[in-house]
Each structure stands twice: as structure tokens, then as C-alpha cells.
């Protein structure tokens, strides 16, 4: 199983470690040729303006879209979610438009409004500790998007076929359940 973490900028190491803890193996990737060989891709947390610029300038938009439309699971956290979104409020950031949601960046405010709290995730027996850092808000979801968790009524973990995204950072906790969920998507995609 070849899992890549897009490694231009952001918390790449934490995602690689989280995948390892969940029983998989991941490596940093930056180039189109690497992406075309992957079974799964993670777009990490970081600065969405910076990561989006690299995706665009390095010509990764089409390679990522092609892989996702052929069934490769992809997971975006925070900045990664923004980059997957169909629409970013004020068109503030270039996005791949492969997840049918609208997002607002830094919707909770500046760093002093960053927070942690327990969230209920569909299919999990106990609550999950959500770490929200200058987090975006999902303001609209399309009809095909399954909301797996909400916080204060707003979606924070969503799944649309093979596209998984969270506004929080599971990679900053030692709870690997969401990375295991992503690994199970990859397992499923390889069987079908």
C-alpha cells in the first residue's frame, strides 16, 4: 500500500507517524510521477495559501484529480480540506474542487480562538478529541456528501465517496481512529 503525504509545507511528519500508528506506511511526495503511483494521498494541515500555490505551480492539479476520479482515496485536514473544496469563500485560495463543500477560512477567528473539544463521530463508540487550529468552517455540503461528525451543528468530518476531510487535526492526537478509517477506505478501493 503506497500512501503519500503532500510534502511542500505543513505537518507532514505528524501524518506519516499517524499512518504508521494506524498500521500503514506513508512517505512524503511532491511530484506528479509519485502521485500517479499512489494508493492514497493526504493533504496535511499547514498554510492553505502556500500549499495551494505549490499544487498549482508544480502542475499537480490534474494528476491529483485524475487519481481521485479513478478511485484513489484522499484525505485533507484543515488546510487540506480547504484545498479539496468545491468552493472557498471569497475565492481566497485556489482549490482542487473534488469535494462538494463550501468552506470559509479562519472562520472561528485568530489563534486565540483555536480550541479542543470532544466530538461525536459516526461509528465511533467513544468521543474523539478534535483539535481545531485557526480552523475553517464547512458552510454548505452537497447531496452526495456524508457528514460523519458535527460540532456546534456544523460539519467537521465529511466523506464523499473516496474523499475524506476534517476541519480538525487528528494527526496532532494519539487517537488513530480517523487514520484507520482512511486506511479502510484504501483497503476498500483496492478490493473493488
Amino acid at each position: 500500500m503506497r500512501i503519500g503525504v503532500l510534502a511542500f509545507q505543513g505537518d507532514v511528519r505528524e501524518h506519516i507517524q499517524a499512518i504508521e500508528k494506524a498500521g500503514g506506511k506513508a512517505m512524503p511526495v511532491k511530484r506528479a510521477v509519485e502521485i500517479s503511483k499512489l494508493d492514497g494521498l493526504i493533504i496535511p494541515g499547514g498554510e492553505s495559501t502556500t500549499i495551494a500555490r505549490f499544487i498549482k505551480e508544480e502542475g499537480l492539479t490534474e494528476p491529483i484529480r485524475a487519481q481521485v476520479s479513478s478511485g484513489m482515496p484522499i484525505y485533507g485536514t484543515c488546510a487540506g480540506l480547504i484545498i479539496l473544496a468545491r468552493r472557498v469563500e471569497n475565492n481566497a485560495v485556489f482549490s482542487l474542487k473534488i469535494l462538494d463543500v463550501e468552506v470559509k477560512r479562519n472562520a472561528y477567528g485568530r489563534q486565540r480562538e483555536s480550541f479542543e473539544d470532544e466530538i461525536e463521530v459516526e461509528g465511533f463508540e467513544t468521543p474523539y478529541r478534535g483539535v481545531f487550529i485557526r480552523a475553517p468552517l464547512i458552510s454548505k455540503v452537497g447531496p452526495q456528501v456524508k457528514v460523519l461528525a458535527r460540532y456546534q451543528g456544523k460539519p467537521v468530518l465529511v466523506l464523499e465517496k473516496n474523499v475524506l476531510a476534517s476541519t480538525f487535526h487528528p494527526e496532532l492526537t494519539s487517537d488513530d481512529r480517523i487514520h484507520r478509517l482512511f486506511l479502510s477506505l484504501i483497503d476498500g478501493s483496492k478490493k473493488s
Binding site: 509545507q9 488546510a79 487550529i133
Partner: peptide, 11 residues
């Protein structure tokens, strides 16, 4: 949350 923001700046 504090160290987490720093992690997001890496690279």
C-alpha cells in the same frame, strides 16, 4: 494548540 500552530508552519 500552541505547538500545533507551530507544526502547521513547518517547511
Amino acid at each position: 494548540l500552541k505547538t500545533g500552530l507551530a507544526e502547521m508552519l513547518k517547511g
